[in-house]
Amino acid sequence: MKYLSFHAEGRDRFGFATVNGVFDLSRRTAYTSLRDFIARGRADEARLIAKTDTADYALAEITFLTPLPDTDKIVCVGVNYPDRNAEYKDGSELPKYPSLFLRTRGSFVAHGQPIQLPPESSQLDYEGEIALVIGKPGRRISEDNALDHIFGLTLCNEGSVRDWMRHGKFNVTQGKNFEASGSIGPWIVPIADVGPLGSVEIKAFVNGELRQEDKMERMMFPVRRLISYISNFTALLPGDIIVSGTPTGSGARFDPPRYLVAGDVVAVESDIVGRLENRVELERA
């Protein structure tokens, strides 16, 4: 079972997908969005519908939206794989605390929608990542209880405009928040269907060429630590997204750099979650 938000027959909807097709929860329930459904913890309703009802749409009949268009916040983790830290070639020790920044909802598009290459830069880069979706609210969550707060996993291409990331001395906000510069989706796989988190693999491809590959077990700050640390300073809410960091192999680390250009196709893939794919196009100024 995979939870998603989508557009069909002239309106935005949400539901879940199985091998039988897409089931529309927005017409079957009183919930206002997938985020509302997650907050109420009613996955049992979806399982019952999957067993007793028929699908409303084939996947080919829908247009994907980002899984949680109304998410409260998207917290992103920088430099969370040891090889990624070594890419900086600054001789630094592994960090004691995660590097964090926030992204806006508008900086991401859905699966199948075009990623925008802004006219202000030619340094749009890709970063394939696993993203955690929070299901249970909490503040100052202990590491022992952290996994209880996860609803599921989705995929992210955490697109970055590299030169704009260097405009500020102490922040990367500008380069991480260009409109439609990254993507999230295509859906959320519930944590009960994931298995051991450490075995979850992440890959990123550009035009079919494998550029990034790693497993979550190698993260410097594991999922339990991230949830506990982040929840110290902000209350985590149902539908919040934590983008957990990218492996080595982004375009900036090649010599010369291999930034994205119009027409490139970026795919982020996980054998557990699925495949998130987007084409790059020039943004009209």
Rank of each mutant, 00 (worst) to 15 (best):
C76V: 07
I38V: 12
V273R: 08
G91F: 04
Y97W: 08
K203Q: 15
R84F: 09
G21K: 13
N232P: 00
I191T: 02
E269L: 08
A252C: 00
L236S: 15
G159C: 05
R225S: 11
Y31R: 09
V266D: 09
H111L: 07
R11C: 08
K51M: 13
L153G: 08
G185C: 04
G112K: 03
M220R: 04
L48D: 13
V273W: 02
I130P: 03
R225W: 10
L100D: 01
L236G: 13
N145H: 12
L34M: 12
F16N: 07
E61D: 15
Q116L: 14
A235M: 15
I202L: 07
G182V: 08
L155N: 12
D148V: 00
I230G: 05
I141T: 06
F151Y: 15
I130Y: 07
G185N: 03
S231V: 04
E201T: 02
E281T: 14
M165R: 15
F37P: 03
V19E: 15
A43N: 04
D193P: 00
Y229A: 06
R103V: 01
R40S: 13
I242N: 04
P137L: 03
C76Y: 01
T54P: 00
E283I: 03
S121E: 10
I134W: 04
V280I: 15
K215S: 14
A131Q: 05
V280P: 02
F64G: 08
V268C: 12
T234Y: 09
G91D: 03
S199I: 06
A204R: 01
Y57L: 11
F205T: 00
S183L: 00
R27A: 10
K203I: 04
R218M: 11
Q174W: 13
L197R: 09
R40K: 14
R27E: 15
Y31N: 03
I62P: 10
S244C: 15
P247G: 10
G15T: 05
L226Y: 10
E277A: 14
E93T: 10
L153S: 14
I74Y: 14
S231T: 02
T54N: 14
S160Q: 10
A262T: 11
K215C: 14
R218I: 01
L132E: 13
E61G: 12
K136L: 09
G78P: 09
I150A: 11
F101P: 12
V75A: 02
P196I: 01
D240S: 13
D125P: 05
G208W: 01
Y229T: 13
R162G: 01
I62R: 10
K89P: 03
I241K: 13
R225V: 09
D44K: 05
F233R: 01
R279P: 00
S26A: 11
S244T: 15
R258Q: 15
R11P: 05
E269S: 15
S92Q: 09
Y97F: 11
V189Q: 05
E127G: 11
Y57M: 07
P118A: 12
Y126Q: 01
Q212V: 06
G135W: 00
K89G: 02
S181G: 13
T52M: 14
W187D: 11
A235T: 15
Y126M: 02
D83C: 00
Q113W: 04
G175D: 12
K51E: 15
A192T: 11
L226V: 00
T71M: 09
E213R: 14
S5A: 12
A146K: 10
V266H: 04
D44S: 13
I134D: 11
I49G: 09
N278E: 05
A131Y: 02
L100E: 05
